[in-house]
Computed example of a mutant assay.
Amino acid sequence: MTDPRSQEISVIVVDDQPLVRMGNSLVLDTAEDIHVVGEAASGEQAIALTALLAPDVVLMDVRMPGMGGLEATRHITRTQPDTRVIVLTTFDLDEYAFGALKAGASAFLLKSTTPTALTEAVRIVAAGDAVVEPRITRQLIDAYSGQRYSEPGQHPGQPSQLSDLTPREFDIFLAIGSGLSNPEITNELNLSSATVKTHINRIFSKLQLRDRVQAVILAYELGLVGRDPIG
């Protein structure tokens, strides 16, 4: 008989504040399909515990004494590719937010998020998707939209790095980069949900992107943020 606990999502909670750490652990442990297997108070402890327990998800605080969440996230995503990291922070636009996502985090949430939203984020990330709260996505876009460049002779519409994308895939890539959710893309481009998902999977495969977060970051880096995604 299969052990029900083997089907649970294993989580390590990392925060230097004991009450916050305990609170998040209690919230997650109330879900039948989630089990907190360990807690850590620093980046160093998080790395050691992740190597020992190989959890599905690490809930990572950003600001901690010693090694912070950014460096710990980078190390964990590099050495434990099957473990996903959710970055949790107090601030709407923490100065480490973009760096944490570039370090490989699959989600970026505020500590003011609801218990229901936190639990659902763990499920989504464990399933291989990514989560960034919409208002954070918009703020990141505003913060980094000025980082644009153009190459001599390059077509102004589609950067050469995206040349393998079809026109429709390019439209959807721009929509993702602009922070639109799948339902919003479906409505804006008048496509079915299944078609949008198929296109997104092909985009990720062609561009060798792990998830939605990496797609958003690439859009920032290519200077596409701020353009109308619906062409």
Rank of each mutant, 00 (worst) to 15 (best):
L28G: 07
Y220M: 12
V14T: 05
I86T: 07
S181K: 09
D94N: 15
P156D: 02
L207C: 09
D82E: 14
A127V: 05
G43E: 05
G38L: 07
D142L: 14
R5M: 09
A219W: 04
D164H: 07
T116Q: 14
V27G: 04
T2P: 11
P229E: 02
L109P: 00
T137Q: 14
P115F: 12
Q45L: 11
I200C: 03
I136E: 04
A130I: 12
M67S: 07
G38P: 09
E120Q: 15
G157W: 00
E39T: 13
L110E: 06
T73S: 14
R123C: 10
G153V: 03
G231N: 08
V57D: 00
P81V: 12
L52C: 09
L26C: 01
L118K: 08
S106T: 02
G99E: 13
A130V: 13
M22S: 14
V132S: 04
R63H: 13
L101N: 03
V11L: 13
S106Y: 08
Q147D: 11
V20Y: 10
D29M: 10
A72W: 08
S150M: 00
T186C: 08
F98H: 14
Q139H: 08
F173W: 04
L118M: 15
G69H: 02
S10E: 13
F91T: 04
L28E: 03
L70V: 15
